[in-house]
């Protein structure tokens, strides 16, 4: 019961402070894994992002359900999902009554002028944690001290190829992320990552 309450509270906080949709919940989830190491690891979180991106539904909601399920089963998933949505419902039901004043309010506009770059900085920092576990082998490097051990060359090559395919190649860059996720899974199995 205490675990469920903590889950609800953590996701309520995420729903209240995550601004900018989708990936904006990510920094909060990393913060959660740091404070509750028994819930899930950063590597597991990266896997949950992949599943959330490849399943129907808004990413933020999918991640909440997944993290909740992973931590405390079906009930955990339910509690986390409702916790994430609760502040939205409260805030929107208030804002909806004063929509015009809200949208033209100079303070709201000014606050969001500061919040948008904040969201970018937070997501980039969370992304860096994924990079650390996906592309580098910090543990192997610390054990051997050899610089070559720091880099996961197979992973770096795949990352470079994906970067080109998602940004530069006209034919592939408009494709849905699920295509790249499935292809990466296949590459991972074929070349035993």
């Amino acid at each position: 019961m205490k675990l469920l309450l903590t889950l609800f509270f953590e996701f309520f906080k995420t729903g209240l402070f995550a601004v900018g949709g989708g990936m904006a919940t990510l920094p909060f989830l990393y913060d959660m894994s740091a404070r509750h190491p028994d819930w899930f690891s950063t590597a597991q979180l990266a896997d949950m992002i992949a599943v959330s991106e490849s399943s129907p539904g808004p990413i933020g909601v999918n991640m909440a359900t997944y993290v909740g399920f992973h931590t405390a089963g079906v009930l955990g998933g339910l509690v986390a999902t409702l916790g994430l949505a609760a502040p939205s419902v409260i805030v929107i039901l208030i804002v909806a009554r004063v929509l015009r004043q809200f949208r033209s309010n100079e303070y709201v506009d000014a606050a969001f002028y500061g919040l948008r770059p904040c969201s970018v900085g937070l997501i980039a920092a969370a992304g860096l944690l994924v990079v650390k576990i996906a592309l580098f082998r910090v543990d192997a490097f610390k054990a051997s001290g050899a610089l070559a051990d720091l880099f996961d060359f197979k992973a770096l090559i795949l990352a470079a190829v994906l970067l080109v395919l998602t940004r530069a190649v006209k034919k592939t860059k408009g494709l849905h992320p699920i295509v790249f996720i499935l292809a990466s899974a296949a590459v991972g199995v074929l070349f035993s990552f």
Partner: peptide
Amino acid sequence: KSAFAGIRVCVCVLIFNSVLKLWKGAV
């Protein structure tokens, strides 16, 4: 496990792309 190790690489790239997209509108 191998499949997810591959997928994690992809997740890096997807996050990088969405940061760039958000950056354009925010900064």
